[in-house]
Amino acid sequence: MALLSVKNVYQTFPLKNKEVVVLEDINFDVNEGEFVSLVGPSGCGKSTLLRIIAGLLKPSSGSVLFRDSEINDINPYTSMVFQSFGLLPWLDVTENITLGLEAKGVSLKERLKKAFKYIDMVGLEGFEEAYPRELSGGMKQRVGIARALIMEPKLLLMDEPFSALDALTAENLRSEILKLWESGKLSLKSILLVTHNIEEAVYMSDRIIILSAHPGKIIGDERIDLPRPRDRESKEFYAIYDKIYSMILGSSLSKEVNPLMGK
């Protein structure tokens, strides 16, 4: 049984007096133990798709199933890491991380116990009482990750989590996430990462689902069996990168009419 199934999902938005199709007939599964990336150019609807999976947005048609049960509200088995971190500036690190537990009515003692565990896991020890304004982008995103992990989701959704970071910080955080994922310390079963960065997807994932833009459609589903840590300089790495890059480029160049621009 798949952990997550996306079935016949369409998403349309009204624009002036016509409907724009953002996602067209999206179908895929995520299995337990898989790290899956969704890649595609801007406008392919990948972040919209992630919001549909999280239950933050209802698809125009189609359905999202978690272990074969349909999700009709906020998906309780997922939590999300955002590109822009989404921290509350008036709360310190510990308070930001435990906010979701507080909303669920978890006792203070239990919240702090869990916070301690996840603060340790993501390397935030020492920063517990810091406020977001005191933190670098990388540290802010660690808070974002701990805040998602503390909810102990089965599926972690990550929406361009490294895009707002500088190259060095992003590189470090990517390798830390992979170390955590491979350590078996996490209770989560799978990760779904949205990114426009093909190299990042090839570096991190077990599988890459490739979307085209306008409308967002699945144009490829590639398995990556390279051992980790992956060598970006290797021939095998480059071959996969090149294949995915060509697919995205090909789908973008073959569009004669861009529906957003009209005919």
Binding site: S136, G137, G138, M139, L165, D166, A167, L168, T169, A170, E171, N172, L173, S175, R232
Partner: peptide
């Protein structure tokens, strides 16, 4: 110095 950048630089050099 941001600690994340220092760690990233080491990862880059190792790579």
């Amino acid at each position: 110095v941001e600690i994340g950048k220092l760690l990233g630089l080491l990862a880059y050099l190792e790579d």
